[in-house]
Design a protein around this nucleic acid. Structure first.
Lengths: 178, 178
DNA sequence: GAATCATATGTGAGTTTGCACATATGGACG
DNA sequence: CGTCCATATGTGCAAACTCACATATGATTC
């Protein structure tokens, strides 16, 4: 039920195509939401059927034509209504932690290797996030219209850094066991 | 596809009923996985059909009878195989951050109220987690068999604390705007 | 000239998940 | 005696999601 509001939310900032939305979901927005492109196209169809969106076809010469979607008044209203509701408690699904919870089943060396690899991967992610931050907020100071992006990317980096720090902690715990 | 391994994982530590599993999912395991009880009962059925589990009915006089599930050899093998595979990158779904990304649409007072409430709720959660920690690891030192639980609860508290700290940061940003 | 890539939009089929509802036992509480 | 609570296990249906596959355009690359 929340994907629709992620879509409406992105479209409230700028009208765009399903392809553009897919890019956003795999890039800027990926640290708090994700969706497969097939799901996005179906959701756009549904939202248009409900009158929350409409689209216009843009013909392109060098690329395939595209459909640019934008919010209707009803769409903006639905988004604002949802924003005023209280959020449900989040439902965690962390496959890495699920594996960690079973680390008593494998030798410490394997556990350490897993953690080292995870740490390395997240260090790469945080580098990319920091680059994005510097590009978009070079003065570390958002304009009011971009405050949401500023705060969510800030949370994103803190979240990843917490994981990296915890990996080091966990590696330390296993190292003492060996 | 990962719920099955969460179930097999819990059963690898101790045999138990679907009801017991449901309790675990809403308590100890809730900081990294969740599942509705209807989903658990269906998964148990499926895993048994595949020969990864079997059960025995335990008759009780003061309560309804129950089915105690335990791993078969094939079940343990499947779990170990999965543990040796590399994890897929996590797919984030954070409804609170989705709302935050749209905070330019609401007045700063409402944004601050949202963040204050979220912070308060997470402070309650972290209190409960710390109590649990003190009960299970009073010396802050796990036995090898419990290292997974020790590390995951440690991550859980760090994760929640990161959210609380970020809430304070975000409240500060909005306060300057007002 | 062929193969590949980025752009662009989808369908069909299956799996996973969530929600409402159903059923049953025995203890506790008023 | 009735109601509620914790225990215990499910079904039916709908929504959300994933994966494989399908199609088309024009630019780039070999």
């Amino acid at each position: 039920m929340a994907l629709r509001y992620a879509v409406l939310g992105l479209l409230s900032k700028a009208e765009m195509s399903g392809y553009d939305l897919t890019q956003r979901f795999t890039q800027e927005v990926s640290h708090f939401w994700n969706a497969h492109h097939t799901q996005i196209y179906r959701e756009l169809q549904k939202l248009e059927d409900e009158g929350l969106l409409h689209h216009q076809v843009v013909e392109q010469s060098d690329r395939p034509d595209k459909k640019i979607y934008s919010l209707t008044d009803a769409g903006l209203e639905a988004l604002l209504t949802w924003l005023s509701e209280s959020p449900k408690p989040p439902k965690m699904k962390n496959e890495s932690l699920l594996r960690v919870s079973l680390f008593h089943l494998i030798p410490p060396e394997r556990a350490i290797a897993f953690l080292e690899e995870s740490k390395r991967a997240h260090q790469e992610i945080i580098s990319l996030m920091n680059l994005w931050k510097q590009e978009h907020f070079p003065d570390d100071h958002p304009v009011p219209q971009e405050i949401g992006e500023y705060l969510t990317i800030e949370y994103g980096t803190r979240f990843v850094q917490t994981w990296i720090d915890w990996c080091e902690f966990a590696i330390g715990v296993f190292s003492k066991l060996r």
